[in-house]
């Protein structure tokens, strides 16, 4: 585990209230995903289900360091992003169930959550595909002379798509307020990072674009928080895009359909020993921010939220079939529910 370049990190620590909020968010994400896995096994959730269990510190630490109006993009592994941004767990679960009450009306599913009100600009399924969208969101901020910051969140695997280099160059060239946040969980599906990347220090990709970058312990929510806080300051105040590499691990297989046979147990255990929730709990206990009582209250509240989310999803109505073509265009030119290309029948 390397933690390079922590010297430049600002000393800021979130205040006690924010620390507790971050803790609760991490617990919520963990439990939400564990429950989602159960519902998937029961056949209530279809398609792919990618869990970020083990990656909660990277998700929550980064998002907590941003303002709520800083737009973010993500991948298909994005339940945590939505929840960390404050999306209603009920509507997120309903989306996983493919119901009309889902956050995208049941059209997107687990891989394609979006909550535009909360400036979460979506989870995308094509590896690397969402990175330039964040650059576009940054461009729009710059264009309107706003002071928010866009953050692209993507995996280690995505760094080998050409579009990342294209995106970083444009952001640097035009001084756009963008953070390139790579959540390095050391695997792209079954392929370990050292079998896919010639240089596994992913943050070094920024150097070629004259961009500052940091490699952080992605199992530590505070390390991630501080790193992203500084990146956000750079972007907001100096129009300086930068890159953050957070090193973490996903405990489960790539998705629910991955038998996960290529990763060594010993490796999994090594990472799980540094579990982000347990580590953070220890810090909070040490500081007196968390007591056994508050921890219990957090867990109980999360349990209720998650159970309510499942019940809500389960009781929600299906998506009306008449909606099949509803959102294809702003102004559809055909009333045919099978789409705008009307085939004589």
């Amino acid at each position: 585990m390397t933690e390079t370049d922590t010297t430049l990190l600002p000393p800021e620590r979130p205040d006690a209230a924010l620390m507790l909020q971050m803790y609760e968010s991490m617990v919520l994400i963990r439990r939400f995903e564990e429950r989602a896995a159960e519902e998937y096994m029961k056949g209530h959730i279809g398609g792919f289900l990618h869990l970020a269990i083990g990656e909660e510190a990277a998700v929550v630490g980064s998002i907590s360091a941003l303002r709520p109006d800083d737009p973010i993009t993500s991948t298909y592994r994005e339940h945590g992003q939505a929840l960390a941004r404050g999306s209603d767990p009920k509507r997120v679960m309903a989306e996983l169930f493919g119901r009309s009450t889902g956050i995208c009306g049941g059209l997107g599913g687990s891989m394609h959550l979006m909550d535009v009100e909360r400036h979460f600009y979506g989870g995308y399924g094509i590896v690397g595909g969402s990175i330039p969208l964040a650059v576009g969101l940054g461009f729009a901020i710059s264009y309107r002379e706003g002071d928010s910051v866009a953050m692209a969140m993507f995996g280690d695997g995505a760094t080998n798509q050409g579009v990342l280099a294209e995106s970083m160059n444009m952001a640097a060239l035009w001084k756009l307020p963008v953070i390139f946040f790579v959540l390095n969980n050391h695997y792209g599906m079954g392929t370990a990072i050292d079998r896919a990347s010639a240089d596994t220090d992913l943050f070094k990709r920024a150097e070629a674009h004259g961009m500052p970058a940091k490699q952080l312990d992605g199992m530590s929510v505070l390390a991630v928080y501080r790193g992203v806080l500084e990146a956000a300051r750079l972007a907001r105040e100096e129009r300086q895009p930068s890159m953050i590499e957070a090193r973490a691990y996903r405990y489960r297989g790539h998705s629910m359909s991955d038998p996960d046979t290529t990763r060594a147990d010993e490796e999994k255990e090594r990472w799980e020993a540094r579990d982000p929730l347990v580590t953070f709990e220890r810090v909070l206990y040490g500081e007196g921010t968390l007591t056994a009582e508050t921890a219990e209250a957090v867990r109980a509240s999360v349990e209720t939220q998650v159970e309510e989310a499942v019940a809500f999803a389960d009781e929600s109505p299906p998506v009306p079939e008449a909606d099949l073509a509803r959102h294809v265009y702003a102004h559809p030119w055909s009333e045919d529910p099978r789409g705008s290309a009307v085939v004589p029948r």
Binding site: G46, G47, E95, G98, R99, C104, G106, L107, G108, G109, H112, P318, V319, E321, D323, L324, A325, V328, P337, R338, G339, S340, A341, V343
Partner: peptide
Amino acid sequence: RVSSADVPMPYAKNLEMAA
């Protein structure tokens, strides 16, 4: 001609079947 509906594929099972 029989084809998929002229829409991006929806996630919800019932809509996917319809498409």
